[in-house]
Design a protein around this nucleic acid. Structure first.
Lengths: 266, 266
DNA sequence: GCGTTGTTGTCCATATTATGGACAACAGAT
DNA sequence: ATCTGTTGTCCATAATATGGACAACAACGC
């Protein structure tokens, strides 16, 4: 009851505006549900991931259902993003400038590498897969789809983005996501270790992908102000990405990453 | 303080769940902002349209800005749907079954009629344009774009949908939208008159379109349970739609409307 | 110059609103 | 039959969101 501080206080880093706890909570519920995609998420998982109490989550979710923002699947009882969300999204028709800037690079890298390529952007404390290119090689890792959303740190793309952030910011995000890591069978310490390794290596990597037997390599994409906003990822069965080829692939990714950065800047 | 009623009360028409006023209010703000599309909406207009007080709207809007759900345009000071909304929408990739069912009919009707064709669906108390086909005739009415959202009643599509609803429901919606009609230079009495006329005529019509010198004809599309969910509209410069041609066009629309209804049902 | 009418933004005492502990009911395991 | 996992509901309570009042600024008229 004292930190109201100076009258026209610094607005630089956005002191949290008060008087809307419920709205903020509803949004954090929505973001968890978004990670569940079509299948949705059980209530208990939302409770775990948000750290809210169950009555609160239950109330929020059911109000959102009445409003058409959330749906409940009758069979499974899981909750998912409802059809009014895309309807609201139609108000914003222009395609993301990132996607436009990345398109040629994705096409080039995809034909050159031949394995599945992903473009993943950061949104808040999550990564969001916004584009996927399937390569020519007969075995492709297709587990991740456009729209897939995961806590920053869980995928190699997330690790790459964390590695490119100031260390302090990265630690904060990892701490904020800690409760959610359990679901993805990892923990804060592991993630921080991978981030450090990626920082040294110059790109992100996961020897054990989220899917058994796959391996992923990710490079981060920064805007002109130096903040990483996205990552470019190659996923393949592990045997396809031995040390020699890892090097080759990483070089292609780094080259195209720079091309995307230039396209955004210019 | 008595209508808590029977223990396992009728859930048929969804008695409003309480304990989330703020969330509901935030959503009604969002829906108004969605109607403003890229340009957004001034705060005062949101206040008028929602009937909330200005401090409340201001607080809600600014919390949503902090959360990335709303953006404020620096030049105009207007508020608009932010980029996190499409990001959340990515969680729901499947295309609307209505769009799929309507596609062949839209294509047929568009080539046959030659004027601009719209598919507009109902969402809550609004209409939302979800598809537009440009015809072969050199003068086309392009004012309405995919994503355009307006209160039910102001467009001919909205009038058509209201006409196909039970009279009592239609009256309720018109009453709920009354505060917003002012912005579109109409009022409840006018709308109700147009709805009655449309009901008698069998399709919706606006002699004076939202754009000067245009005329629109709309037919309603019902699901098997008899509820109208969308409308198909032709817009053209008024001189293109004299009484003779109005009749022709209406017949084509009604025919294709029935085709869509069958495609949804089967 | 000086009202007038339109904005947007902020403060803070107040009471309305959202909260969460406790309880209930059900589904699968063991 | 008991345990552990769910989801859903109630309601007294405290914390939260509310909105009246005030302020600052812009555009317009005269």
């Amino acid at each position: 009851m004292d930190n109201r501080s100076s009258p026209k206080a610094a607005r630089i880093a956005a002191e949290p505006r008060q008087g809307a706890q419920a709205i903020r909570r509803a949004l954090s519920v929505l973001r968890i549900l978004a990670a569940g995609r079509e299948d949705g998420v059980p209530l208990a998982e939302v409770v775990r991931a948000t750290g809210l109490t169950r009555p609160t989550v239950h109330r929020i979710v059911h109000v959102l259902i009445e409003e058409g923002i959330v749906e409940r699947h009758d069979r499974s009882g899981r909750y998912a993003i409802g059809n009014q969300v895309p309807e609201l999204a139609l108000a914003r028709p222009r395609p993301s400038p990132l996607l436009v800037a990345a398109e040629p690079s994705l096409r080039r890298a995809s034909t050159e590498i031949g394995d599945t390529l992903f473009l993943t952007m950061r949104t808040g404390n999550d990564t969001l897969c916004v584009d996927r290119r399937i390569g020519a090689y007969p075995i492709q890792v297709l587990s991740i789809e456009v729209g897939a959303r995961r806590p920053l740190g869980v995928s190699s793309a997330g690790v790459a983005i964390l590695a490119a952030l100031p260390a302090q910011d990265a630690r904060k995000i990892v701490a904020a996501n800690e409760k959610r890591f359990e679901t993805y069978r990892t923990d804060a310490a592991t993630v921080l270790g991978q981030v450090t390794a990626a920082r040294r290596r110059g790109y992100g990597m996961r020897e054990i992908g989220l899917v058994q037997g796959t391996k992923s390599i990710s490079t981060w994409i920064k805007t002109t102000d130096g903040r990483p906003v996205a990552a470019m990822t190659v996923s393949a069965v592990r045997t396809r990405l031995g040390p020699r080829r890892e090097q080759e692939v990483a070089e292609i990714l780094l080259r195209e990453t720079r091309a995307i950065e230039q396209a955004i800047g210019g």
